[in-house]
Write a protein that binds this DNA or RNA. Sequence first.
DNA 1: CGATGTTTTGAGAGGATTCAACCACAGTGG
DNA 2: CCACTGTGGTTGAATCCTCTCAAAACATCG
Lengths: 229, 229
Amino acid sequence: MDCAENCFSKSHFLFKHLTDSELDLIISHKDDGLHKRGSVLYNEGNRIKGIYCINSGIIKLFKTGVDGKEQILRFASAGEIIGYRSVLSSELACTTSEVINESTSCYVPGEIVIELIKNNGDFALELMQMTCRELGEANSYITDIAQKTAKERLAEILIHLKNEFGVDENDVLKISLTREELANIVGTATESIIRMLSEFKQEKLLEIKGRNIKILDFSSLNNISNSFF
Amino acid sequence: MDCAENCFSKSHFLFKHLTDSELDLIISHKDDGLHKRGSVLYNEGNRIKGIYCINSGIIKLFKTGVDGKEQILRFASAGEIIGYRSVLSSELACTTSEVINESTSCYVPGEIVIELIKNNGDFALELMQMTCRELGEANSYITDIAQKTAKERLAEILIHLKNEFGVDENDVLKISLTREELANIVGTATESIIRMLSEFKQEKLLEIKGRNIKILDFSSLNNISNSFF
DNA sequence: CGATGTTTTGAGAGGATTCAACCACAGTGG
DNA sequence: CCACTGTGGTTGAATCCTCTCAAAACATCG
């Protein structure tokens, strides 16, 4: 439950830039928490006062569209931070963050983060780089979703999920999502996901048992996805 | 052609945080340029060494999809800066920037910007806020493009273009785009844009003369767009 | 075991793309 | 001067991809 391992240590890509006293400052103000599947760290539209550093588990970040349909924008797992966008831009939260796999995280008040940005140039720069990378990924996804077919996008997402979360000892994707959640990433209907998954299964690209997905033919899937991984 | 007015002045949202000596530093290293319609500041995949601050005109930023189709991600006009994402994340440019309306801009070497981030906390914070706002917009657009129909998106874009660039004395949108460019924002086919525009025209929502678009019924268009402007 | 949520399958409707042909217009060069 | 060329805009028809709706199978859990 303590975030010292995955977050506030010298091995963390972002917090490694902090001095010992800055680390002490953050640690003395942080607030650990354990969150079960389905619980929400913050809701779209909330005023967020701090950031969350994820120590374990998986969080999904999504927006709610006009008809109430979720659009999943990204996931966050060990070492990643969420909520910083709203804290830094002084805007309301533009996403809801909900736990997918039971998660421990710690909350750090926004003033502390802003203080660190102002006083520690390396920290500021690293945080900026992180934000810029995320923006680059968002731009790519806009292009994909605007131009690719649902099937191409599903193939791409499956590859992405493997790269981001890896596989277990049986080569099964570590992250397991409902069909609806997959649909809410790809931006399509649940039924379409089901049809495409069973199509991939028939073509021997995947093996599926419930929510467990095993990629059998990575390169064919990669070809279908039309991307450059 | 001098960028002192729109960029490097105390009235600029970002550069106002600089001290006089920092402003002098940036001004002594900047490089002004005039760019005609169609000219490209940098291409997707380029390694960018500095940022461009736009003094006048309009630039479109787009990614090129698999089949060579452009996806326009945003526009930049007076006072805005482009290229900073790649400079700060140390990644290759993820977009191409092409001039739509003849533009003057000035180039500032990346090292200067990074130096300023490290040394001036307020500047760093403001730049971060700008990036975070852009990220928020990108997230919204992902949701829109994934969930809305092409018609809803077109209505939304038209409203957006009016809000961002305004209208002239005849109430005509100041930014004029080809049908293809509109299609490349909305994420649809050129023919679809043509059909939808003439549909809007028939319903007396718009008046169209070539590339000049005049919004006659803003609120109906806003209703169609299903958004919260 | 019933109750609830998830997954699956089918059929039909609808939105959007593609392809093709055609027009308008501006610029080029013989 | 006029044919030639290229770009941008328009329209129609056929096709295809996806969505929606509905119903049934399945799973999970208290």
